[in-house]
Amino acid sequence: MFNYTLRRLLTVIPTLLVLIVFSFYLMRLAPGGPFTSEKPLPPAVMQNVLERYGMDQPLYVQLWTYIKNIVFHFDFGPSFAQKDRTVNDVIAQGFPVTLTYGFWSAVFVLVLGIPLGIIAALRHNSIWDYTMTGLAIFSQIFPNFVLAPILVLLFTLSWGLLPGGGWNGGQWEYIVMPAIALGTSYMAGVARLTRGSMLEVLNAPFIQTARAKGLPERVIIWRHALKPALLPTLTYMGPVFVYMITGSVFIDVFFSTGGIGQDFIDGAYSRDYSMLLGLAILYSLLTFALNLMLDLLYAWIDPKVRSSL
C-alpha cells in the first residue's frame, strides 16, 4: 500500500510538468495580453510594464523562470490584474472560502442524499420511493444557476432570513445558500445512485443468505448491505467534490463569496497568465489528491481492490 502511494505520488511530477508547459503555451495563443486595453499603453510605458513582469523575454525563458520560481521559492508569480497581490496571496485567501462551502455542500449532499436513497430502496415501489425519486429528479433538473436566484428570492427577498450574498469571514448564514445551491443536483444524483445500488445489493445472494440465517433486518442493512451499496456513491463523490470546487465559478460570482472560482473567470478574461497557471496547478493537484484518497478508501472498503494494489 505504501509503495503504491509512493508510486502514485511520483507520477504527479511529470504530469504537472506536461500540464504547465501545455497550459503555458495554450494561454499565449489567445489573442491579447494582460495589458491589452481599450486605451492601448504608449510604447514606452508598455515596454516598462513588460520588462517589470519579465514578459519581454522569449517564451521559453519565461516558462523556465516560472517553473524555477515555483520549485525554488514556491512563488507562483504576480497577479497582473490585482496589482498589489501575488498569485500565492490570491489562492491563500480565496481557496479556503471555496473549500469551506464546498465541504459543507458535500456534507449536505451525503447527509441528505444517502438516507433518501436508502429509504427509497427499502420502501421499494411504495409512496416513499416514488416521492423520493420524484424529488431527486426534480432537484437534478435544477442547475445551480436556476436554483441560486430562487433561493435568494425566497430566503432573502421574501422571508428576509439570510443575506443575499457575501462571506463575512464565513459565518454560517453566508454558507447556507451557496452550499445548497452548489449541492442540490449532486444530492439528487447521490440519492438515485444509492437507491439503485442498495436495491442491487439487497437482492444479492449474500443478503439472501443473511436473511435465510434469520438475521434481523437492521443488522442486514447496517452491517452487510450498506458498505457495498455505498461503493458506487463513493466513486461518484470523488470527482463530484472536485467538480464542486472547480465548478463553483457560478456560485462564487453569484453569491460574491470571494472564493477562488471567480479568479478563474477573471483570469481568463483579463489574460492573467500567472493566475490561470497557478489555478490550473492547484486544481490538478486537488484532482490528484482526491483520486488517490478515493483509491485508498476503496482499498479499505473492498478487499478485492486491496489485494490488487
Binding site: T156, L157, G164
Partner: peptide
Amino acid sequence: IGDEAQGLTRWRA
C-alpha cells in the same frame, strides 16, 4: 458583487 441582477436584489434587500 459580480452579477448585476444580484446587485439589484441585494439593493432591494
